[in-house]
Design a protein around this nucleic acid. Structure first.
Length: 385
DNA sequence: AATGAGCGG
């Protein structure tokens, strides 16, 4: 066997190194398990700054194994090192075969020494077979409650999953499963969302009455939903005093029923109020969607009003949107009128959008300086931002 | 609830 090839077998990759760790320091540490042939910390060619990883080449394979078994996650200069067999083939390193995801780990204790948790995890799971790498994810606040253990082969990984799923670790019932890439996971969630069985229901906004009347309770909601299929549960959300928050949820036993309910009740009315019914979303998802819709609306409005928007200043306090609109009737279609308000009171200025710049200009020349209520109108073309 | 990142001479 070629010399280089021989030593490569006893070569360890050392990652997560503190920038100040030196070859000397590593040599002292790893020589404790057996003779070390060479050590190299990889550095930037120009600055010579540590790239945060190194190779430790042992003379004996058994010593490398021993280092891996006993020194993984040991802190050097306060930072836990991460030991792996040197593997130059990026495909083999990154490919997801044998990679296991673990969640619901205990994160109650703010454990600043992350090496302990990592060592425990590594020791626990190495009883199933050879591990390429493992890590419990953490941040400044401690464990994030999930981890990865990458086994050398899938059979071992599946056995570990089978044995460890539902196992108790520090009072936490673990979830263990095959690792899924972000892309796969997103696709899976998308799939699940399209097969929804939970629906959200509320009244579409009106000026005064925003939500359900107080007369819509669980029973009434059950009635509304009942003709679409078997209902597992309904719930009108209430505040701490038991008053309806004006929206609720229904859970069906099948996607078909939920879909039918959403399609058929949406835009129908209940006690004369128009309803919104759709797939129940998580709050963050709903908020993101609303935000995006609002942005789009704003942009559309901006495009439509380009060059045709007037600012009206010095407005009498008694003038609201409707009164302002009525004062500009003869200049063609007005697409939008808005009197700016603060706590329900006019701020004394507003804007009007016309269907064309010509109509806006005409309106301005004819209306500027006119008296409305008790004040002289001050009109200007809105500046392009 | 949560699905990573890392490889020289």
């Amino acid at each position: 066997m070629h010399v280089a090839a021989k030593y490569r077998q006893a070569s360890l990759y050392v990652g997560d190194l503190h920038a100040d760790v030196t070859e000397d320091l590593l040599f002292k540490k790893f020589s404790a398990v057996g003779p070390v042939l060479s050590i190299r910390i990889c550095r930037d060619l120009i600055t010579r700054c540590s790239l945060g990883y190194a190779y430790v080449n042992f003379l004996q394979l058994a010593d490398a194994q021993k280092a891996l078994d006993t020194m993984n996650f040991d802190p050097i200069k306060g930072k836990s090192i991460c030991l792996m067999w040197s593997q130059h083939d990026a495909y083999l390193r990154k490919y997801g075969i044998g990679n296991v995801f673990i969640k619901n780990l205990d994160r109650a204790s703010l454990n600043l020494d992350k090496s302990i948790d990592n060592k425990t995890l590594y020791e626990h799971f190495s009883s199933f077979g050879k591990i390429l790498s493992s890590k419990e994810m953490s941040d400044d606040h401690g464990s994030r409650g999930y981890a990865f253990v990458h086994f050398q082969n899938q059979i071992t990984a599946d056995r570990a999953i089978q044995e460890m799923i539902g196992a108790l670790l520090k009072d936490c019932r673990l979830f263990v499963g095959r690792f899924k890439s972000r892309k796969d996971r997103e696709a899976e969630l998308q799939n699940k969302a399209s097969e929804f069985t939970n629906v959200y229901i509320k009244l579409r906004k009106k000026k005064k009455k925003k939500n359900f009347g107080d007369d819509v309770d669980d029973e009434r909601l059950r009635e509304v939903f009942s003709k679409y299929g078997k209902i597992l549960s309904v719930k009108v959300m209430t505040d701490s005093s038991g008053k309806s928050k004006g929206f609720g949820f229904g859970s069906f036993d099948s996607h078909e029923a939920a879909k039918k309910a959403a399609e058929e009740i949406n835009r129908k009315d209940i006690n004369g109020q128009l309803l919104f019914v759709g797939r129940a979303q998580k709050k963050a998802e709903r908020q993101a969607e609303l935000k995006q819709m609002f942005e789009q609306l704003k942009q559309e409005r901006f495009r439509r009003c380009r060059g045709a928007k007037l600012y009206i200043k010095n407005l009498d306090e008694t003038i609201d949107d409707e009164k302002l609109r009525r004062e500009f009737p003869s200049f063609g279609s007005i697409s939008r009128v808005k009197v700016m308000q603060e706590e329900g009171r006019s701020k004394g200025f507003g804007l009007i959008c016309f269907s064309s710049p010509e109509k806006a200009t005409k309106a301005m020349t004819e209306m500027n300086g006119r008296i409305l209520g008790s004040k002289l109108l001050n009109i200007a073309l809105a500046q392009r931002p």
